[in-house]
Computed example of a mutant assay.
Amino acid sequence: MQLDRLVARTMSRFAKGGLASLRPRQAPAEATAPLAATGPDRPRGSGSWANEWVGTKAAVERAKSLARPGRKRKSGKAAADSIPEGTIRTKPLMSARGVKLHNWISDRLEAEAPTCTLHACVSLGAFLSADTAHEGHDPLAGLVADLLIVDETGQPIAALIRENVADPSRHLLMLDALLDADLPIIDLPAKPTLSMLWGEIAETLPGA
C-alpha cells in the first residue's frame, strides 16, 4: 500500500542520513511534545530535530489510521496506491529571474511596509471566493497569481501578474476575476523597470 511505502521511505531516509541531517524546523509547542530523555548519552540541543521526528511519526501514524479498512471516507474511490511510485518530482516554483524579482520586492516591503508579506504562485481560489463555484463550475480553477502582496491581517492588497502569452484567454479570465474582486493589478513585464514597478506597488500599500 501507499502508506506502507511512505513508512518505508521515511525510515530509510532517517537510516541513511541520520536524524541530525534533517533541516531544523521549529514546531509549535502545542502541536508536538519534545522527546523525553532516556539516558545520559542522548544528544542534547535545541530539540528542533526531535520535534520534527515526532511530527513525522505522528503524521504517518495518523495517515495510517485514516486509511484503515472500515473507516468511512467521503469519497468511494480508494486513495491507496493512487500515485505510481517514482512519478512525482519537484520543479522550480519560479525562474531564476523571478526569484531575484521576488527577493527585491520582499526587501523593499521589509524596509517600507514591514507589516506586508509577499507570496509567490498563489492560486486565485486561495484568496478569492466565487459565488458560482457551488454550481459545479469553479471559474477560478487553474488560475494563479504570479505574486501576491498581503497585509498583516491576511487580506490581499495587490496581485502582480505576468501576461499569459501561451493562453491569452486564461489571462483575460484571470484579469476579469481580479477586476471583479476589485483587487489592484500590477503588470509584470518581461523586463520590468524596478523603479516604476515599485512606484505602482507603493500606491497599493497601507497608508499610501
Rank of each mutant, 00 (worst) to 15 (best):
E30V: 04
L109W: 00
V7Y: 10
G45A: 02
A96F: 11
L22Q: 02
E112K: 11
A177K: 00
L101I: 12
A126F: 02
L124R: 01
W53R: 04
W49D: 07
T153L: 09
H119P: 07
L197F: 05
A8F: 04
L22W: 06
A67E: 06
P189N: 00
G70A: 00
D187M: 10
D4S: 15
A113N: 00
L35R: 14
P192H: 03
K64F: 03
E163D: 14
E61Q: 10
T153D: 09
A20C: 10
A158F: 08
A79D: 15
L124K: 01
S46C: 03
P156F: 14
G142K: 07
N164A: 12
L160E: 00
I149V: 12
L22P: 01
L118R: 03
G39Y: 00
N164S: 12
E152Y: 08
P192S: 00
S75K: 10
S21L: 03
R42P: 03
T38D: 01
L35P: 11
D176G: 10
D4G: 15
K72D: 01
L172A: 15
A58T: 11
G45E: 02
M196G: 08
I83M: 06
L6C: 10
P43T: 08
F14T: 10
D180Q: 09
E110D: 12
G98A: 01
